[in-house]
Nucleic acid binder design. Sequence first.
DNA 1: ATGGTAGCGCTGCTA
Length: 258
Amino acid sequence: MRIATWNVNSLKARLERVEEWLAYAKPDVLCMQETKLANSAFPAMAFESLGYESAHHGGGRWNGVAILSRVGLADVVAGFSGETEPDPIESRLLSADCGGVRVSSVYVPNGRSLDSEHYQAKLTWLSDLTDHLTNTCRPDAPVAVCGDFNVAPQDRDVFDPTKFKASTHTSDAERAAIARLREWGLDDAFRALYGQERLFSWWDYRAGDFHQGRGMRIDLILTTQPMMKAARWGLIDRNARKGKSPSDHAPVLIDFEL
DNA sequence: ATGGTAGCGCTGCTA
């Protein structure tokens, strides 16, 4: 099973490129983030014609997450478990059963700066995600939590660690939040396949960062042990970051022998 | 050199 994640930075602006990518990458499951669409504007028919069922959770303009699947899509849940009235603007979590795997598409809050209330909200959000997993699934079952975590788990996941002192995405507290997900039972499947390599999934649009290799690896596929054991191969598709009107993120995919 | 670009949507915010 090929599982992919891609922050598309507006699905309205990116639909053609997503369709093109689906046609050649042929993922079984694609988690998308930052669709920036309301549910009523989600182009489900375009994906249906390519053979994908889909689910979307979005309030428009900001955030928005989706799951596409051609191996089944069941038990779709938007937001955290037990959320009585999810704020559509804060649409950052969507979960579904896809071919025997509990898949979540996540868009973790950016945090903005270490002294911002949004940074505290980011830490709370990651803690809530751990609670959500505890409440909804088991670490000995096949679980894949995929998305833009807005955290670079290790120094090798940023182009220059000295440039990320006292900044979001690399702070001890953010990495500790990822460590708590690991303690729950989720591992970084791409890192397990690629060891020490420094491969990035996001590059700022500005200042030629992509062509200068100034990026970060913040788009992660975190999986439980049954999935880790089945992980065979992975790719960050940098070609999808090139050419006309790319997202600032590249898609990340992993093949699991399931 | 604290710049630079993109998306949304119409003013400045978010990333």
